[in-house]
Design a binder for these strands. Structure first.
Length: 346
DNA sequence: AAAACGGGGCA
DNA sequence: TGCCCAGTTTT
């Protein structure tokens, strides 16, 4: 009962036909791996297609403006991936003559590329024996070998990396890496895995011990922070409005939004009047306003819940230069804002 | 070592 | 609702 051979056999029978499996060009492998970080294939696939179309080569990506890259990335989340992707494309073109580094050791030095992605690119694009360890690999190995070391600890990370390195097929590392991940994604799923028809069932420790649902072990849950956002949708008679770029560190860096007043709690209309009278945009202005959404729109991020109110504020003339309703679509915006734009007709 | 970083899908 | 996803960077 050879784990690696079995996984590879399963893969050749069951792999999905995906566009990045028809190439070994490092640029495309890199692009697909960044898009697929913490992202399921179903969600990432259309983004991969549009990126390949918009930026067929690393030179095209490098020459683009960051804002255009973020616009294409809009809705996918974890926007630092897009900023780092663009940064690294420029670096490869300017410093490396457009040539992608061809070893794990060199690849992992690039911004936005960590152990997983460096291993994936090194193996798939260059045939290097470098074992990938992603969420799928943690799950498959923890179950098959019955390992209950928490996967989100230094000990667990080292232990699973070492095990994957032991198991990887020395002759076909790319095939093994993709096989174990695909096996985890399709067969050894987090919930309701297909153990009944699993080719590895007889050797699977977790299955024998009936512990499939308990593995892998992951330590605790971080507490979700609540935040209260009040967006000022300031419009004049021509429906021009004001948007701002998020400069500061934190969520949505370099994306655009309406002027924001963050409060400690959800506020009332009279409390809003008070805040508006002190607001830099509004304090010297006559305006009428109404609340777009009666109940807070709750936008959920992995570690923050954003309770959001959109205040529609009508003024005679904008307090500073605005943009036309038509040009808003040119700016990258968070999904929360994009959702509002689809509901509010300018 | 822990926190920060999005958004969608699914039971 | 809570958990998970082809993770990496910052603190």
């Amino acid at each position: 009962m050879n784990f690696s051979k079995n996984v590879i056999n399963w893969y050749s029978d069951n792999k999905r036909d995906l566009p990045w499996r028809h190439t070994i060009k490092p640029y495309y492998i890199w692009l697909s791996e960044i898009i697929l970080q913490q992202t399921q294939v179903k969600q990432g696939l259309p983004y991969y297609e549009s990126f390949v179309k918009a930026f067929p080569t690393v030179f095209d990506l490098a020459e683009s403006e960051e804002q255009n890259v973020l616009k294409l990335w809009q809705g996918l989340g974890y926007y630092s991936r897009a900023r780092n992707l663009h940064y690294t494309a420029k670096y490869i073109v300017k410093e490396l003559d457009g040539i992608f580094p061809n070893t794990y050791k060199e690849i992992i030095k690039l911004k936005g590329i960590g152990d997983y992605t460096a291993s994936a690119i090194a193996s798939i694009a260059f045939g290097e024996v470098a074992a990938v360890v992603d969420g799928n690999v943690y799950r498959v190995l923890s179950r098959f070998y019955g390992i209950d070391t928490p996967i989100n600890t230094t000990k667990g990370i080292k232990e699973f990396k070492a095990l994957a390195t032991e198991l990887i097929d020395q002759k076909q590392p790319a095939l093994f890496n993709q096989a174990i991940m695909e096996f985890g994604a399709q067969q050894c799923k987090p919930k309701n895995p297909y153990c009944i028809l699993c080719p590895l069932q007889s050797g699977c420790v977790a299955f024998q011990k009936n512990k499939i649902s308990e593995l892998p072990v992951k330590l605790k849950k971080l507490k979700v922070k609540k935040r209260y956002f009040n967006y000022l949708v300031i419009i004049d008679s021509d429906r021009n409005t004001i948007i701002e770029k998020r400069i500061q560190k934190g969520i949505w860096q370099n994306l655009y939004q309406f002027p924001l007043i963050e409060t400690e709690k959800s506020i009332t209309i009279s409390e809003f009047k008070l805040l508006a009278s002190e607001n830099e945009f509004l304090k010297h202005l006559n305006f009428e306003f109404n609340l777009f959404n009666e109940t807070d729109i709750v936008h959920k991020l992995s570690h923050q819940h954003l309770y959001t109110k959109f205040w529609i504020i009508e003024v005679n003339s904008l307090p500073r230069k605005g943009i036309s309703p038509n040009s808003i679509k040119d700016y990258p915006v968070p999904a929360l804002i994009n959702e509002f734009l689809s509901k509010f007709k300018f």
